[in-house]
């Protein structure tokens, strides 16, 4: 296969040498079936070893390689070079502080994920010897979609609310909390209420729907957040009990 040389503009930031991020251009010979991540690796291997970026599985499931390509948050392992015209501009995810080059600071994101208590909460745990909990395919279907989140944080980069309210818990975390609330095995609804429906919870969302537009796994976080608003509001009024349990 023949290579074609493509121009990449990559936002570089090396805090030990630069006070501010700036773009640097690279000419990269690309194979026709390359994704943007392949080009970044080619730069790292053969052109400029100082370029730093995260990646791992290269099959769209580990969630490491999210970046902005031509302004849109994407997984670079699933963004084909051939689908872009002209110069390709690669930047770190927006709404996150930049540690270096294309690497952003994710600690805050992970704290937010943790804040919604994304685990099964039960008053009485069943013993393993007693076998599994019964869960019908319909009950599974109810939360399945929201369990598909790979924590790639693209939705955080796309969310206009997070740009103005950095403390907003955010789409992925709320979708995850909602996923456990919808799980027929869970009884932790009340324990998640404060994180999901408190000061920085669902109410900050103004339903831009951007999270769902960029989600590479079709999780539809906007749906989760806004369904959670309805449940939260009904719980607030007392129409729905906070400890809803099957």
């Amino acid at each position: 296969m023949e290579t074609q040389t493509r121009k990449f503009e990559i936002l570089r930031y090396r805090p030990e040498e630069q006070s501010e991020p700036e773009f640097r251009s690279y000419e990269v010979p690309c194979m026709p079936d390359w994704v943007v991540l392949d080009a970044l690796n080619a730069i790292k291997d053969d052109i400029d070893p100082t370029l730093s970026h995260r990646w791992s599985c290269r099959m769209g499931v580990c969630g490491s390689c999210g970046m902005l390509v031509n302004g849109r948050p994407v997984l670079t392992c699933a963004a084909f070079v051939r689908d872009y015209e002209g110069t390709i501009r690669v930047e770190p995810l927006s709404n996150f502080p930049i540690v270096r080059d294309l690497v952003v600071e994710l600690d805050d994101f992970v704290h937010k994920i943790q804040s919604v208590k994304p685990w099964i909460v039960r008053k009485l745990e069943k013993d393993v010897e007693q076998g599994e909990y019964r869960q019908s395919p319909a009950q599974l279907e109810e939360f399945k979609q929201f369990s598909m989140c790979i924590n790639c944080a693209l939705c955080y980069a796309a969310c206009p609310v997070l740009a103005s309210e950095p403390d907003f818990v955010g789409p992925a975390a709320i979708a995850l909390g909602h996923r456990y609330n919808l799980d027929s095995r869970d009884e932790g609804n009340a324990e998640r209420y404060d994180a999901m429906h408190g000061h920085n919870g669902v109410w900050s969302c103004s339903y831009a729907n951007e999270c769902s537009q960029v989600c590479p796994k079709h999780v539809d976080p906007a749906m989760a957040v806004n369904q959670a608003k309805l449940t939260g509001a009904l719980q607030w009024t007392g129409i729905l009990p906070k400890k809803s349990m099957t």
């Binding site: 930031y13 805090p15 501010e20 991020p21 902005l68 302004g71 849109r72 930047e91 770190p92 927006s94 709404n95 996150f96 502080p97 930049i98 540690v99 600071e105 600690d107 805050d108 704290h111 980069a157 796309a158 969310c159 206009p160 740009a163 950095p166 403390d167 951007e210």
Partner: peptide, 20 residues
């Protein structure tokens, strides 16, 4: 943001590209 100050200098978060 993070409870702790960043251990290394960071460039501030950039707004979603092209908003609004």
């Amino acid at each position: 943001m993070s409870e702790n100050a960043s251990p290394t200098p960071v460039a501030p978060a950039r707004p979603p590209s092209g908003f609004p």
